[in-house]
Computed example of a mutant assay.
Amino acid sequence: MKQQIIMNSFISVDLNSITMPMITVYKNPSDFPGKFVARLFRLHKPTIIAVVKDTLPEIRMTIPRHMVRLPRHQADDPAILETWI
């Protein structure tokens, strides 16, 4: 498995240095069963930075307020709940 950096929040992460940052939120992904995980993406490529929490509201509190939520697309992986841009 690829190394991951688990952060407490994305609010403290400098997203200005990332080209088109996106945060994708997952429910019950295979690498964190029973958890909600938010992963930081650069364009369409995942970074090694993630936040892991027990609930969706906890995850949403870690996402910077300036980001906008996009609902899950029907073609997305079933574990994906939403993406923030």
Rank of each mutant, 00 (worst) to 15 (best):
M1D: 08
K2W: 04
K2M: 01
K2T: 03
Q3A: 05
Q3N: 09
Q4G: 00
Q4I: 12
I5K: 14
M7G: 01
M7W: 14
N8C: 04
N8A: 12
N8T: 14
S9K: 12
S9W: 02
F10N: 06
F10I: 10
I11D: 06
S12D: 12
V13T: 14
D14P: 14
D14S: 13
N16T: 06
N16P: 05
S17F: 01
S17C: 06
I18V: 15
I18N: 06
I18R: 06
I18C: 05
T19W: 04
T19Q: 13
M20S: 12
P21V: 05
M22E: 11
T24H: 03
V25C: 00
K27T: 12
N28G: 04
N28A: 00
N28W: 02
P29D: 12
S30C: 04
D31N: 07
D31Y: 05
F32P: 04
P33H: 02
P33E: 05
P33M: 06
G34Q: 05
G34K: 07
K35P: 08
K35G: 04
K35T: 10
F36P: 11
F36Y: 15
F36C: 04
F36Q: 10
F36V: 13
V37E: 10
V37F: 01
A38K: 09
R39P: 07
R39I: 15
R39Q: 15
L40H: 08
F41R: 13
R42V: 11
R42T: 09
L43Q: 12
L43K: 15
L43I: 15
H44F: 14
H44C: 07
K45R: 08
P46R: 11
T47G: 01
T47F: 03
T47K: 10
T47Q: 10
I48F: 02
I48P: 08
I48W: 05
I49M: 10
A50Y: 08
V51E: 01
V52N: 01
V52I: 14
D54T: 10
D54C: 03
D54W: 03
L56Q: 03
L56K: 03
P57V: 00
P57T: 05
I59S: 06
I59V: 13
I59Q: 03
R60Q: 07
T62N: 03
T62P: 06
T62R: 02
I63R: 02
I63K: 06
M67I: 01
M67T: 10
V68H: 11
R69W: 01
R69T: 00
R69K: 12
L70H: 11
L70D: 03
L70R: 11
P71W: 00
P71L: 02
R72Y: 01
R72S: 02
R72D: 07
H73Q: 13
H73S: 02
Q74W: 03
A75M: 07
A75N: 10
A75P: 00
D76Q: 03
D76N: 12
D76P: 07
D77L: 08
D77P: 00
P78M: 05
A79V: 14
A79M: 09
A79L: 04
A79R: 07
L81I: 15
L81Q: 07
E82V: 09
T83P: 08
T83I: 08
T83C: 03
I85Y: 05
